[in-house]
Design a protein around this nucleic acid. Structure first.
Lengths: 66, 66
DNA sequence: TAAAAATGTAAAGTTTACTTGTCTTTTTGG
DNA sequence: CCAAAAAGACAAGTAAACTTTACATTTTTA
């Protein structure tokens, strides 16, 4: 699965730490998600989508390997 | 977080076992998700959304407690 | 151009998703 | 009515998400 959190975060003009704080996770979690190191829970995806005013599907996308 | 997987599954006329098989998880995982026992990963949410031809946001919704 | 802010990375520990197996209960169709 | 299919539930184990701490590197800003 890939995501464009880094882009959405840039549009929203937030640092990783600020985004983390707003959705209640650690800064390292945001860093790892942006780096594709792991797949977030659906609650996290929904929270990001809400914050960025986008749908989950606009931020997260399945890949052939999923 | 709440979800309407049970309804979507009924619309698609699939058993828990059939849905599980189609998205590559165990039957118990589907049962637990429908029962709200745990929050699926975003990959699972995307796979269900794709199968049901719905957006993730139409199937999964944040609650006040999230 | 130095200091500060932001990002990257990594290890160890906790929590939770998910599996496998088994049994019981409910629903469905003949 | 009854058997078979489906759903519900539970326990024990594994895998992965997420935290905390700590430090190194890169980028930004004064």
């Amino acid at each position: 699965m890939k995501n464009n959190v880094k882009v959405q975060r840039a549009i929203a003009n937030l640092t990783q730490a600020e985004l983390a704080e707003k959705i209640g996770v650690s800064r390292q979690t945001i860093n790892a998600i942006e780096a594709g190191k792991y797949v977030p829970s659906t609650v996290l995806a929904l929270k990001m989508a809400k914050l960025f005013e986008k749908s989950v599907n606009e931020i997260f996308e399945l890949e052939a390997t999923d």
